[in-house]
Amino acid sequence: MSRPLTATINLAALRANYLLAKRLHGGKVLAIVKANAYGHGAARCAQALAEVADGFGVAAIEEAIQLREAGIRQPILLLEGWFEASELPLIERYDLWTAMHSLSQVADIEAATLSRPLTVWAKIDSGMHRLGIAPSDFPELHARLEATGKVGKIVAMTHFARADELDCDTTPRQSACFMAAIAGLKVETSLCNSGGILAWPDLHGDWGRAGVMLYGGTAADRQLPDWPQAVMNLDSRIMAVRELSAGEPIGYGGGFVTERPTRVGVVACGYADGYPRVVPSDTPVLIDGQRGRIIGRVSMDMLTVDLTEHPHAGVGTAVRLWGEGLPAAEIAASAGTIDYELFCNVKRARFEYQG
Rank of each mutant, 00 (worst) to 15 (best):
S194E: 06
S194D: 08
S194I: 10
A199M: 09
W200I: 07
P201L: 13
L203R: 05
L203A: 06
D206A: 11
D206N: 13
D206C: 04
W207F: 14
A210T: 05
M213P: 01
L214A: 09
Y215H: 13
Y215E: 00
G216C: 13
A219P: 05
A219W: 04
A220Q: 10
A220T: 11
D221F: 12
Q223G: 06
Q223H: 12
L224F: 12
P225K: 10
P225M: 11
D226Y: 09
D226G: 03
Q229R: 15
A230M: 15
V231S: 04
M232P: 02
M232T: 12
D235N: 13
R237T: 14
R237S: 14
R237G: 01
I238K: 04
I238Y: 00
A240I: 00
A240M: 14
R242P: 00
R242M: 14
R242D: 15
L244N: 07
L244F: 03
L244P: 06
S245V: 09
A246D: 11
G247T: 08
G247V: 06
E248F: 02
E248I: 12
E248P: 00
P249G: 05
P249L: 05
P249M: 06
G251S: 11
G253H: 07
G253E: 07
G255N: 13
G255S: 12
F256Q: 04
F256S: 02
V257Q: 10
V257F: 10
V257L: 08
T258A: 13
E259M: 11
E259Q: 15
R260N: 09
R260S: 12
R260I: 04
R260W: 04
T262F: 02
V264C: 03
V267Y: 01
A268H: 13
A268V: 10
C269T: 09
G270M: 10
G270P: 07
G274I: 10
Y275W: 14
V279A: 04
P280W: 02
P280F: 03
D282E: 15
T283I: 06
T283E: 02
L286R: 08
D288T: 11
D288Y: 03
G289P: 11
G289R: 11
Q290M: 12
R291E: 15
G292D: 05
G292Q: 07
R293C: 11
R293E: 14
I294H: 02
I295A: 08
I295F: 02
R297M: 15
V298C: 02
V298Y: 05
S299P: 00
M300K: 14
M300H: 13
M300F: 01
D306F: 01
D306Y: 02
L307N: 00
T308L: 02
T308R: 04
E309Y: 11
P311W: 07
P311C: 09
P311D: 14
H312N: 15
A313Y: 01
A313G: 08
A313H: 06
V315Y: 08
V315L: 12
G316I: 13
G316M: 13
T317C: 09
A318M: 14
A318V: 09
A318Y: 00
A318G: 12
V319F: 05
V319A: 09
V319L: 12
R320Y: 01
R320T: 15
R320K: 15
L321D: 00
L321I: 10
L321F: 04
W322P: 01
G323H: 04
G323R: 07
G323F: 03
E324Q: 12
G325W: 04
L326Y: 01
L326F: 01
L326V: 03
P327H: 04
A328M: 11
A328L: 07
A329Y: 04
A329E: 15
